[in-house]
Design a protein around this nucleic acid. Structure first.
Length: 718
DNA sequence: ACACGTCGAACAATGTGTAT
DNA sequence: ATACACATTGTTCGACGTGT
């Protein structure tokens, strides 16, 4: 297999080169385990959340998701583990972003593994891989619903014809069990946990490997994966800020060192609460903001001076209690500045940071005492502060040490790349928020105008660089999700690249804007994905509305009545409901979504006062609570409907590709006698894959789901 | 449940003066 | 020429509301 991997690696790097990209070979991750394994685990793509980023193996327990996978239905000598894409990447979006021939190169290699491996069961993690195998790779599978305790799940039969070395007389090569990505379980829903546990139990039973009961349901994986990982991942994958400490930028996986830096200890100990016994004092104060540049200018000289005062005690320092108070105070507020949101709980973490930051200056950290490393860090920071320009915002910003002060930027206006910010500033009041810099954008759209540069990494939040913005502690949390539903400017050719004229939906010809304009002209209009594209409306101020006593913030609709349009809030709600789906599925949904009307509806009555509104609201709440008590079955039904809706939404193209197609198979009965289907219950097998190119059209195979309004909705959309 | 309308406030985007 | 700091103003937000 080494030889095959080596060949693949050469081919992969060359394919990138043919696309004009130079990539590092040592970020390719090897397949782990033997081809004779009983079970194969098929994951998505390796990330940088690891202690072994280079020349790595897939079986890398310093990566939390992989650790979770390896914790259940996985026996070291009987399990094969590989990723669908073998290239380590900061974002696991290779399936969307890599050139198609690169993706195919990975898939061809993995397919040779799948062709050669003996495992009767393959567990596939995550919807992205599932969709890819079903749609783009076009594999043909048959669906096999289970029964009894397992009647809410099904397994998938992988047809022999999917393999180039197909053997005559065999209908199926193996069983595939599609399960959710482990990262999903940092925010578990009970029903999802139960389902995942069942799926893995079935996979393990068929394969003949051990598994752990209620592994996901009882969060038993937490004995393997550190507790703080939850907040970090939440932030990284879901953009939710849980604690100030693990805010914003900590999502950048390349910089974050998981607590499994102590993996040996953690695993042996199996108790996350005392992972680093003796060093719990190291945990940073959660509530305190980092030092601003201004504060550091004052405090650093004092901190540096303590080194000589305490010189002969330095080697004895082991935890925070041994430090001079001011050093402890300094350290506790470096969570963002030095450590960039990483949780630092002990000397090992300090050493890792020291090594990472100190690669360009100072001695390597191995043989240094804790105190020497800490003073090394203090001095690094002092040198940085000295070089910084004096700014009137110094009390509101802080800087990080290289390499964490380099941020790739794109133009806020046109989203084209800008030169990177090599001295990134961060907001003290808003943890982890990058402070925008304005610079010239030389793209065709912006033509050298001054534009805001925002981080290219969309997981890094940012804030406008003015005093009022930087002083405000809470942001309104601007929604960016709607952007997922609009076209890239470079996909807007022909008519879509032309300006769009719009006018107030109420005033039409009488529309009045500032500067004697009667039309709102949008030079670079935003269009939705899917066909036909819809113009995304704006709501500028209409002076005519104002003069006639209306608020003047009505929607503006295209003057050309043939241009369909939609408003942004609608896009947000679509993204909320269908955000988990593949982009092309979303495009289909958007394509058939109703356009917004071109005429105003009947004016509403007078608004009640705010006080009255609040009183009404509390009344409604009470009434709701009462009615819940009186009629709990209604609430239960509603909840079921909600779950059904989310099932349908989540099931995406996978479920909706189902069509009834009876067929026969004996592989299952051979390998899994315990799962033998009762004869009285005639199978309703379904075949999936390639059955439908229009995913949401067919939901006939979902007869086991309760009839709900959501189903009506699906039909309307289709 | 959905499709909007309305509101006050926060935000985005850019103009302009000034320092380097 | 460039970046910064501040000022200004249009745009967009979430919350809350009504009508269908």
């Amino acid at each position: 297999m080494d030889n095959a991997f080596s060949k693949f690696a050469n081919l992969e790097v060359n394919t990138w080169a043919a696309n004009g990209d130079s990539v590092s070979r040592d970020l390719l991750v090897r397949v782990s385990g033997s081809l004779c394994s009983r079970i194969a685990h098929h994951a998505h793509q390796p990330s940088f959340t690891t202690l072994r980023p280079h020349n790595g193996e897939t079986a890398d327990e310093t990566n939390p998701c992989i650790a979770m996978i390896m914790g259940n239905a996985f026996e070291k000598n009987h399990s094969l583990l590989y990723d669908h894409l073998l290239r380590r990447d900061e974002k696991s979006e290779g399936l969307q972003n890599y050139p198609e021939d690169v993706v195919k190169c990975h898939e061809a290699f993995i397919q040779t593994v799948r062709e050669s491996m003996e495992a009767k069961v393959e567990v596939v993690y995550g919807a992205a891989v599932r969709e890819r195998m079903l749609q783009k790779q076009g594999y043909k599978f048959d669906l096999f619903p289970l029964w009894g305790d397992y009647d809410d799940i099904y397994i998938t039969l992988d047809r022999e014809s999917n393999y180039s070395n197909a053997q005559q007389g065999h209908r199926y090569r193996r069983i595939i069990v599609f399960v959710a990505h482990p990262q999903r379980f940092f925010y578990p829903k009970p029903e999802e946990c139960a389902r995942q546990d069942k799926l893995l139990a079935v996979a393990a039973k068929i394969a003949g490997v051990n598994f752990i009961e209620r592994y996901y349901n009882n969060q038993k994986w937490r004995t393997i994966v550190p507790f703080n990982f939850s907040s970090v991942v939440k932030n990284k994958f879901y953009g939710i800020l849980e604690q100030p400490q693990s805010d914003g930028d900590s999502g950048n996986a390349s910089g974050w060192v998981p607590m499994t830096s102590m993996s040996k200890l953690t695993l042996a100990d199996a108790s996350t609460s005392q992972v680093i016994g003796g060093y719990k004092d190291f945990v940073f104060d959660d509530g305190k903001p980092p030092f601003s540049v201004q504060e550091l200018r004052k405090i650093l000289p004092v901190v540096v001076a303590t080194e000589t005062e305490h010189n002969y005690h330095l080697h004895k320092w082991e935890n925070l209690a041994d430090f001079p108070e001011i050093v402890g105070a300094w350290l506790r507020r470096q969570g963002q500045t030095l450590f960039k949101g990483r949780l630092i709980k002990g000397p090992v973490d300090i050493m890792l940071v020291y090594r990472q930051l100190g690669t360009m200056e100072g001695p390597p950290g191995e043989n240094l005492s804790l105190a020497e490393m800490i003073y090394g860090l203090i001095k690094m920071q002092a040198r940085m502060i000295e070089k910084l320009p004096i700014s009137s915002l110094d009390d509101l910003i802080y800087y990080r040490l290289r390499p964490f002060d380099v941020i790739g930027a794109i133009c806020y206006n046109c989203r084209q790349p800008m030169s990177q910010d090599t001295e990134a500033r961060w907001a003290v009041m808003r943890l982890g928020h990058y402070v925008i810099r304005r610079r010239r954008c030389n793209s065709g759209i912006c033509q050298g105008k001054c534009r805001a540069g925002i981080p290219r990494d969309s997981s890094i939040p940012f804030v406008w660089g003015s005093r009022p913005d930087l002083s405000a502690q809470i942001s309104r949390r601007i929604r960016e999700d709607w952007r997922e539903t609009i076209r890239d400017p470079k996909d807007c050719e022909g008519k879509l690249s032309q300006p769009v004229e719009s006018w107030c939906i109420i005033c039409k010809e009488n529309t009045q804007l500032l500067g004697d304009r009667t039309r709102y002209l949008e030079e670079v209009p935003r269009w939705t994905i899917g066909g036909p594209p819809k113009y995304v409306e704006r709501r500028p101020m209409c002076l005519n509305c104002q003069s006639e006593g209306r608020p003047g913030t009505a929607r503006f609709v295209p003057v050309d009545a043939t241009i369909p349009s939609i408003y942004k809030k609608k896009l947000t709600s679509i993204e909320k409901t269908f955000g988990g789906l593949e982009k092309d599925v979303k495009a289909e949904i958007l394509g058939v979504e109703r356009t917004s009307s071109k005429n105003p509806r009947a004016p509403a009555g007078p608004r009640p006062s705010r006080a009255q509104a609040l009183a009404n609201k509390s009344k409604t709440l009470e009434a709701n609570a009462l009615s819940m008590l009186q009629n709990s079955s209604t609430a239960v039904e509603e909840e079921q409907n909600r779950i059904a809706l989310s099932n349908i939404a989540n099931a995406s193209a996978f479920d909706s590709c189902l069509t009834i197609s009876p067929c026969h198979g004996n592989l299952v009965n051979e390998v899994a006698p315990t799962l033998k289907r009762p004869l009285t219950n005639m199978p309703h097998w379904s075949s999936i894959g390639g059955a439908s190119k229009r995913p949401l059209e067919s939901t006939s195979g979902l007869s086991f789901l309760p009839e709900t309004k959501s189903k009506v909705k699906q039909q309307r959309i289709a």
